[in-house]
Write a protein that binds this DNA or RNA. Structure first.
Lengths: 404, 404
DNA sequence: CAATATATTTTGACACGTAAATTAATAGTG
DNA sequence: CACTATTAATTTACGTGTCAAAATATATTG
């Protein structure tokens, strides 16, 4: 067994409690202390103490007004909510040649956003930090705030990352390997930067602010150029031992199957990803234009047999992959998250039926499968959510220390 | 968020601590208090309190003597170990037409074992309980103990089971569905009975007493007639929301592939299971003789091309499935557990190479993959281990209550 | 035997959560 | 409009757990 992580005993309990209370408030939106006690199982006394701490730290506030409708007698409940102005954060998604930035308040509300071109697809660690700073500065300018007003910046990278230690083993955006970005405000930047894998961050966003609110065991699947997954187990992102699990897109669904970007064959992604469907349909995307499934769908509707086959095969393989995940994880919910992804060919009664027929317990109801269209800022939003969470945790940590 | 499970606050902490201490002792075998403190991160004072409680409860004892070799000065450390005589338990595996029973002491050491034929493959809940009682009684007779001397009985069933509430949603051994076996000593039996899924119980046995000791994230794969899996995450069995996950054998590895026992096609099991390999090799098992992979291996060695193909395809598919698990779970360790299973064709440098070539991060080392040959009593042993764990937890629970 | 080293136990202090009592703030009621 | 009933939130007093430090136990070394 691992030695306890420094925090044994009661001090640790306090942090956990404060965190539970804050998460409950975030999840429900507006909630009275008495209901927090109900939800969390803590006593009203403890909730009073916790909320008092959180208010002193500025993370939450009392909402001036009533809940209108229900007029009951007795002392009226005082609703609490997040204090949106508590912090400003930025979320940055580093894509192939582009960084997109979202500035958000502590509630997660979008304040501003901006896209920046990157000089190259792969950079050194220092180079990446500079680009992040540049992109964030540009977004701050849009928002009319100073870069120094941000409390923290979350960054979503493709790659293998140990989020707890801010250590990037490997990323497709970095030329360096095994970079330790440390835990303090970065050099040349006034705020701390928190790195994590992009798919994990979408899962985090779904958990805290999306379709996964209040659900503690679910999967998040993204289908774009590649196919990604985030796993939430017991309310926590599951990362595996080295932080390189959840590679749904590279699970094999055939022996000697289609050729994948990764160089191997038979990966699910090689049937599902944008590039794969276009390839199978015999279409070539215009130079620099993003591969667009819409083209294939249009062709299929127009009667193009090859396009139809490509879509059918993609949906067959998708159903097979989904059934595999259900057979393995038995999740409560699967969220199909996309920025602009069209899930029409992947989420239909027909596909659901295929999934149902490939799940072992055929008579059991399938888990809830929901499509969540986030829009272009999905990935950046995940990063921003991560920053909010990290800031919250740090604040709670400091809070617990100060008490001593 | 789920409301706290009744146990908030400090009382709960105590139970967790006691449990950690007991698990450490079980894992290490003989250990001094000071080392327990080291391992668990608890303070020596707390360890003294905990071990004192555990000794009063009779679960552990001081071992009379030294550790011989190293003569150091200072007060000599006193080693602690489980008190084997603390409890006797039975583990029962219900198979198609046969129940096998293992009687073990609190350390898990085998006291006796016995097999019993079952009148039918599927029974009512009452019928099953009677058969369990009969089989256990027979084993007790062998061991020369009274049935009432047992503190508890664990039962391994194929099926979907909620182990925390002892609720069997469905089992291949039961005609009834949704049977609640309750938490108290069963009717007609002097001891409490603890049910769980058989694959989960093998995983539990590996975790507490097998190759998974001290490892908190690993997979256990069993290949016999069917193909099963147990998942350990953060030191706990992962069960999914309905308790029907980890169906590794029924993940699909091909569209429209081989026909599986479950009625579907392309299941991994339809390439790997005993019956599948014999089928592919064109051999028919003798009536009532267990399907024996050895036959196929012999034929292959003798130059039978069809047998060779069957084995090659099985190992190809196995490698593919293993790679999928690694890509998804990124585990620290995968244990191939078998009673008598011969893993020769599934665990060789050739297969390892195939796995390596199908894992996304090709340059990363594979997780440790170990074969564990338990012998015939593997399944029953899992059930006995479960009983030991449940008894321990109950004792600790009572301990914590009594303090108040 | 004194000095030193190491393991364990005891003691006293501190932190946390909670039940119960108290205070606060409202609606009904005659 | 006082007065009561009712519900929410806070304060108080207390029990429990862990831990640091001190005390104790038991060995070796010189």
């Amino acid at each position: 067994m691992a030695p306890a992580d420094g925090a044994t005993g009661a001090t640790h309990l306090k942090r956990v409690g404060r965190r539970r209370v804050l998460e409950t408030i975030r999840r429900v939106g507006k909630i009275a202390r008495i209901d927090i006690a109900q939800e969390t199982g803590l006593s009203p006394a403890t909730v009073t103490a916790a909320t008092s701490d959180l208010m002193n730290a500025g993370l939450i506030e009392e909402v001036a007004q009533d809940l209108g409708g229900t007029v009951k007698r007795g002392r009226p409940r005082v609703l609490l909510r997040l204090r949106a102005k508590a912090h400003l954060v930025a979320g940055v998604k580093i894509a192939h040649r582009r960084a997109s930035v979202l500035i958000a308040d502590f509630e997660g509300k979008e304040i501003a956003s901006a896209d920046t071109d990157l000089p190259s697809a792969r950079m050194t660690a220092d180079g990446l930090m500079q680009e992040i700073a540049r992109a964030v500065a540009a977004a701050c300018a849009c928002a009319g705030i100073a870069s120094a007003d941000l409390s923290g910046v979350g960054v979503a990278l493709a790659g293998q990352i140990d989020a707890t230690s801010n250590f990037v083993h490997w990323s497709s955006s970095l030329t360096d390997r095994n970079v330790d970005f440390g835990t303090d405000p970065a050099e040349g930047a006034p705020w701390p930067v928190f790195f994590d894998n992009d798919a994990n961050l979408v899962a985090k966003a779904e958990h805290l602010m999306g379709e996964g609110r209040g659900v503690d065991n679910f999967l998040v699947v993204t289908v774009e150029h590649g196919v990604g997954m985030g796993i939430v187990i017991d309310g926590k992102i599951y990362r595996g031992v080295h932080g390189c699990g959840a590679e749904f897109g590279h699970t094999k669904v055939a022996l000697d199957g289609a050729l994948c970007q990764c160089g191997q064959t038979g990966c699910l992604e090689a049937y599902l990803g944008d590039y794969a469907v276009l390839r199978a349909a015999g279409l070539t995307p215009a130079m620099d234009a993003p591969a667009d499934i819409g083209l294939v769908q249009k062709a299929a509707l127009a009667g193009d047999a090859r396009a139809q086959d490509a879509l059918t095969r993609a949906s067959d393989m998708f159903a097979l992959g989904m059934a595999n995940m259900i057979n393995l994880f038995d999740p409560e919910l699967i969220i199909l998250s996309g920025a602009q992804t069209c899930f029409d060919h992947l989420h239909s009664p027909k596909v659901t039926e295929k999934i149902q027929n490939s799940v072992l317990r055929i008579d059991a109801p399938l888990p809830d499968i929901r499509v969540h269209q986030w829009g272009d800022l999905m990935w950046a939003r995940g990063a921003a959510t991560f920053a909010i969470e990290q800031i919250s945790l740090r604040t709670i940590q400091t809070m617990a220390q100060n008490a001593a």
